[in-house]
Write a protein that binds this DNA or RNA. Structure first.
Length: 697
DNA sequence: AGTAGAGGCGTTTTT
DNA sequence: CGCCTCTACT
């Protein structure tokens, strides 16, 4: 250990959480209570006590959280030791476990992301000729995924599923979905958790190896674990129970995705003898903000009781703002940010606007643009989701793994090369008959002329197709062959990939098909950016394309290291805001049917009132929003909001009633800002002038 | 293969 | 209302 750890920098409960190293520990970490600090110090403390770095595992949900953890530990213990620790997401842990044990699994795999998964479901629907795509594929996939995460086999799922139309379809498709993935040598995100658990379950050697490897395990954001993740983790620690979980049941906002808050509520039952530490001192927000947060969340029933407090000075009251409509609300936000940046020493980067659903960002973006404030929208389409990048990835995946039918279907006729639906159907039929993969069927077509020979046994006689499709399929097979040998032979992956994609006609298509030269330029840049990141990977980790592609699948967010967020306003959903903090926060659209959301209020349709709905998760969203603010918190809403064309009067969110009136000032968004002091007005005028000057440059 | 027009839909989405 | 998807036509 390079530096002796300063445990006196911690408050007493934090220190307790850091130094209680053996046996199960539950750290209930309120918002802003120094949670990451506890985890990183705990890791450092373990190392100081002589635990080898290889024996320590820290798991989180997002790459961002994992990276941050890694960076902060590195500051404490130095890069040499930090490198030997395992700090990863659940999914990359699962992936690495499977890779390390690939003999047990039996095959190398590609990872299917959400859009690949949807592709599989869509294909299966077509196959069982469940008449058409009148069904919401997402809803079906959602059910299958839910079943997998709960470890329900297809039979078990069938037994317990409702008889809703979608339940029946999902029950029918679930086994077929799994079979298809195995055929394609693909694993979806859920499999990355579920398969390791199965493996640990059935193979005692593997189990012993991994239990022995990680002797101290930590899990961040424990309130968000689903059953599969819980099982994975408990398998890993069963031998020693040196498990420390950190989380906040009040910030559990992913229940709809299968996260079970019960895990954190019942930790002491799952791990008897658990040591429980509560971190309630908040280092982030002013008392007014915390009082509001405590007031709101105390209306929830099922929770570990706790109350955030702070030693900070009182600070200012919250602002409760009513606007006529969303446009006025948005204009208010933009102008207020302008004022804060003019008269107080805030920068746009200190400000964030939080909303329940993405559609709400639109008027805000317009107002900010009008005010000439820079902003970024968190979430949205990420770099690797862009079509041109996904197409490139599909080509590479296919070259590596020809069984990957989803990638094959994605690119077989893109760019257009004359392999239409008919040809594809014929190929698929041929594949089915012989029980071979779709790609092998393509290869057969190349070798044996599938098209003008024998009539199909079941179908109509084959009309003369004139050999053209066969030529096209042959050319396609040659292309993939060429790609494969390029990737194997060329000196570096980047140039191999570039040549391959060039040969596929991808860049030509980007140039030709774009609506404008600017768009074409942008797409080519995206493609180039992708090749750059491939190159960086090869420099760093060596020539391993499949590792690169697998990692890409797990890296959904833009690594926004390059985007400078210091001077731009952040727009983000309440879900996306978890883990972030800002000096100035605007919570907008605080109205009934937005927060709490209609779909939560009326789960059975808008005309079916339901008095028994549980609004706990919606309230926690409100709580998460409030606790993002350090100094200033604005609670805004619109009195009217258009809903499908017609304007409708809005009721304030019931959560606003839960905030004591003494904590806030009321404002009207259209009224002039409260009288500023002469100095403020002066500073504002100066700032405005400066800005005008800057604009004319 | 590409596109115009109809029709349907409208919450959140760490990996 | 506005977007996205599908369909039917060229």
């Amino acid at each position: 250990m390079p530096v002796a750890l300063r445990l006196d920098e911690l408050n007493p409960p934090q220190r307790e959480a850091v130094t209680t190293v053996d046996g199960p520990v539950l750290v209930l970490a309120g918002a802003g209570s120094g949670k990451t600090r506890v985890i990183t110090y705990r890791v450092a403390h373990l190392l100081e006590r002589g635990v080898p770095p290889e024996a320590i595992l820290a798991v989180s949900f997002t790459n961002k959280a994992a990276d941050e953890m890694g960076e902060r530990v590195e500051k404490l213990v130095g890069p040499r030791i930090a490198r030997r620790l395992t700090m990863s997401t659940f999914h990359s842990l699962g992936m690495n476990l499977l890779k390390a044990e690939k003999k047990s699994l039996g095959f190398a795999f590609t990872i299917y992301d959400a859009s690949d998964q949807l592709g599989v479901v869509r294909e299966l629907l077509r196959r069982v000729s469940i008449d058409d795509r009148k069904f919401d594929t997402k809803a079906i996939l959602f059910r299958i995924s839910g079943a997998k995460n709960k470890f329900l086999s297809p039979e078990e799922y069938q037994a317990q599923a409702g008889d809703h139309e979608y339940d029946l379809i999902a029950a029918d498709l679930y086994p077929k979905y799994q079979e298809a993935l195995r055929n394609f040598h693909a694993l979806d995100f859920d499999d990355l958790i579920v398969e390791p658990v199965r493996l640990l379950d059935r193979d005692a050697d593997v189990r012993a190896r991994w239990q022995d490897r990680f002797r101290y395990v930590m899990v961040d954001e424990y309130q968000d674990t689903n059953r599969a993740q819980f099982n994975l983790m408990s398998h890993l620690v069963r031998a020693h129970n040196n498990l420390c979980v950190v989380g906040d049941d009040d910030q559990s906002i992913y229940g709809w995705r299968g996260a079970e808050a019960g895990h954190i509520l019942e930790f002491e039952r799952h791990f008897p003898g658990a040591h429980v530490v509560k971190l309630e001192e908040n280092y982030r927000s002013t008392p007014a903000i915390l009082d509001a947060a405590n007031a709101v969340i105390s209306h929830n029933a099922k929770r570990h009781p706790k109350r955030l407090w702070t030693a900070r000075r009182p600070g200012e009251k919250l602002q409760m703002v009513v606007a006529d409509d969303p446009e006025v609300e948005a204009r208010f936000v933009a102008e207020e940010i302008e004022i804060l940046c003019g008269t107080r020493s805030y920068k746009p980067g200190d400000c964030a606007v939080l909303y329940r659903s993405n559609i709400q960002s639109k008027p805000l973006e317009e107002a900010l643009r009008m005010q000439r404030l820079n902003y970024r929208v968190v979430g949205g389409q990420s770099f690797f989701d862009r079509k041109e990048v996904k197409d490139a990835i599909a080509y590479l995946k296919l070259a590596l793994s020809p069984r990957d039918e989803i990638s094959l279907r994605r690119v077989i006729n893109y760019p257009a090369r004359g392999i239409g639906a008919t040809t594809l159907d014929r190929l698929a039929g041929h594949a089915r008959e012989r029980g071979i993969t779709l790609f092998d069927a393509c290869m057969h077509a190349r070798a044996t002329s599938l098209f003008d020979a024998t009539p199909q046994p079941s179908g109509a006689p084959i009309e003369d197709v004139g050999g053209k499709p066969q030529q096209a399929v042959t050319a396609f097979c040659d292309l993939i062959d060429r790609g494969r040998s390029l990737l194997a032979s060329k000196t570096n992956l980047k140039s191999a990939a570039r040549e391959f994609l060039e040969a596929a006609g991808l860049s030509d298509d980007l140039r030709g098909a774009a609506a404008s030269p600017i768009q074409a330029q942008r797409r080519l840049e995206n493609l180039e950016g992708f090749l750059e990141s491939l190159d960086r990977f090869e420099q760093r980790e060596g020539r391993n394309l499949s590792s690169f592609l697998n990692r890409l699948s797990l890296q959904t967010q833009d690594d926004d290291a390059e985007t400078d967020k210091s001077d731009v306003v952040t727009l983000v959903t309440l879900h996306g805001a978890k883990g972030l903090e800002f000096p100035v926060v605007f919570l907008v659209g605080l109205e009934e049917e937005l927060l709490p959301h209609r779909r939560t209020l009326y789960p059975n349709g808008p005309d079916v009132p339901d008095a028994n709905v549980d609004l706990g998760e919606e309230r926690r969203l409100m709580y998460v929003g409030i606790t993002r603010a350090r100094e200033h918190l604005y609670l805004t809403r619109a009195a009217n909001r258009a809903f499908r064309a017609s304007a409708r009067p809005r009721t304030p969110s019931r959560f606003l009633d839960e905030i004591p009136e003494a904590l806030y000032d009321r404002r009207d968004a259209s009224a002039p800002p409260p009288a500023a002091s002469p100095e403020d007005a002066d500073a504002f005028a100066r700032a405005a002038l400066e800005k005008m000057l800057k604009m004319t440059d």
